[in-house]
Design a protein around this nucleic acid. Structure first.
Lengths: 217, 217, 217, 217
DNA sequence: GGATAAGCGAGACGGTACGTCGAGTCTTAAA
DNA sequence: TTTAAGACTCGACGTACCGTCTCGCTTATCC
């Protein structure tokens, strides 16, 4: 397989890159993923089509980058905000799950935040688009999971392991599965739109998952 | 909204309908949803494109019908099989979740069956395609949920209510949410392909969901 | 060649026939020949498509019949008119070229009438359509010539022969060609729209044709 | 009228243009104008449909260009031939009507050539197609007349004016009409296929037109 | 500092599929 | 049995985008 002349990324125009990413996000939000086209992105970004094809293999890849970029910037934004708000943080505070000692409260806090994120009208369209694309395209799905989902889930694993050490969670529980017990129902409701996704729902999921469905003996 | 002259469904050619549905399923399985085209379906079915456009609004709608048809036929097949196998049932036995009195065992049985279904190579491609389409297209998603998912989930609700009466499940638990605690993680893993979907996983989900993550006091 | 089950013309619905012919003419006049469709004619006539296909082989054939029908009716109209106007005519007066003894005057009268006919906005569209169709489709063209043109031209031949007997036209002239010397330029101008088609033009054609271009010696 | 983004003709592919023109002519000759389709031309030319739609508004326009191109090339061919044949002409001799002093002979020569052209099997199909199209579509007809017919007819006008100066044609004759007296009958016979189009016919037309139908006094 | 080559905007190109229209055939129900 | 109605297969329409391919035109680096 010939390398097909990889372009020299050091000479890449950052202005074009940003314009493309912004245009992609805007279009997905405005007209949906289906009707977002490479030609449309190029036109909106004031860029030649070739400039897109030179750096990305597919529409989904562009959107993925746009999304990572967005996530990165919003994370920065949050960090900057909390710092300027006089947080104790020693700079670059890791955005992990808090550990106040109260597992249920901590999880509810995080799950509620996830609910808010999923309901955020700006993020919704591109997230759905990327998720749907990943469901059908295994390669893209793997990238999506690896770059966006896994880092998030790792935080849960950390918190759950801590809970195991304090005895809040049974030692024989697999944290990876436990985490899916929390996230799975949320995603299920969001993806399939069976019922509204609310804070109350997040709370109940945590309660049920931690306490179980069976009555205490 | 203009009525746009609805066609007379009493004169519809069943032969064409079947051929279209079969071709759609076959193509999705063979080349994937993306590369399945209306023209391809028409050609394969030996049918004019207009005959597809006359009866369905979109490729996804065709696939949905094809899928419902498949589900219907396979359900009939199962029913016929169990009957001919001399099942106790007094004919037309409803395909519900068994109630042997052992909730955990019953749920494991059903969840394992679901795992098998999701792993079935024939069903996988169209199911993924439809689910992904529904995630992005709210209207289609609603139809998907209403026609395919809800009936299945109703069975869980029934079984869980029975469990509440026998005291296996706390009375204050919302069966609708409890069910999502079981199904959500399964779907999550299947859709995102984070880890393999196995019987063992199904078992653990049931154990965790019913018993909870916290240690018994 | 199989007769392909000729329909029984004695059972033909005259109401449908008239409706089809009228609709065809109306549509050609309104939207042009190109955009006149069999479906459109059928819909406008309140008739099934098959009723058209049963009795005519093509759109052009329908229009041809419509045109013959129109010509027939307008001829009747003219005849009726002149009769009621107290014309000397012994009924069924043949619509020939008048013979007042003055050849040039007689020809001018007829050519002017032809000019008026060609400029008639009702007749123009269908005549052009039929002529154009006949130019490309030899079979249809032959029918057009045979049914519509030849009868008209025969009248010229008659008048020209009379002129030969009175010595107004040289005896060695072929009336068939002489007639084309008169009609050809008219049609040329009308078909190709090179210049406006007027009475003055008709007059000059007659003058030139009869007298010739060369000066009298 | 929106400008609708005119394409940049400086970047036009001449290879495609030629291929399209050639394919169009070939198809019209082979299967007729009716059955010649844009798709067919594109396929035969090995070209995307859009490349046709980008540069021409209709099938007729393509054929017109193809015809002009053909006429241009055959004119070049003739010019080259006569030059290499050592014609007296001082190069680039204008292809006018000869003026040997004998008007009748000159006109017969040219009209015979026209007869041969109209009878040429290669030119017949496209010429008929274009003429028919122009009869129905005024805009196209005007273009046809302006680009193809008028230049030819201008030659007749020149020759006839010369004849007026030498006294071969009466001074009060309108050359434009005189010319139609010659061309009109030819076209009439060719378009309507009433009778075969021969050299003898051309000769008689010239004789009748120049000399007139009436006997010399 | 002037040549050289890359990225870039623009957009024409060969294609594929779209969704629509109409042709001509076939079937059904009513008269 | 003819008719109105209209569903059927088929083929072409004109459009939208695909991904590839030149074009000139900045730029940015290297001789």
């Amino acid at each position: 397989m010939a390398p097909t002349k990889a372009p020299d990324s050091s000479r890449r125009s950052d202005r074009s890159r940003r314009a493309i990413l912004d245009a992609a996000l805007a279009l997905v939000t405005e007209v949906g993923y289906r009707r977002t086209t490479i030609e449309g992105i190029a036109a909106r970004a004031g860029v030649g089509k070739q400039t897109i094809y030179r750096w990305w293999p597919s529409k989904a890849a562009v959107l993925m980058d746009a999304f990572l970029d967005l996530a990165g910037r919003s994370a920065e934004g949050v960090a900057a905000e909390s710092e300027s708000a006089g947080e104790p943080g020693e700079g670059e505070q890791a955005p992990g799950i808090p550990d106040t000692g109260d597992l249920v409260a901590d999880l509810k806090l995080v799950l509620r935040a996830t609910v808010d994120e999923l309901n955020d009208p700006v993020l919704e369209a591109p997230t759905r688009a990327l998720t749907a694309e990943g469901i059908v395209d295994a390669k893209l799905g793997a990238e999506f999971v690896h770059k966006l989902l896994d880092p998030q889930l790792a935080l849960y694993v950390t918190r759950l392991r801590a809970a195991q050490e304090t005895g809040d969670v049974r030692a024989d529980v697999d944290p990876r599965i436990a985490l899916e017990l929390l996230i799975g129902p949320l995603m299920h409701r969001w993806l399939l739109r069976t019922l509204p996704l609310t804070h109350a729902y997040a709370d109940e999921i945590v309660d049920y998952a931690v306490g179980g469905l069976a009555p205490r003996p």
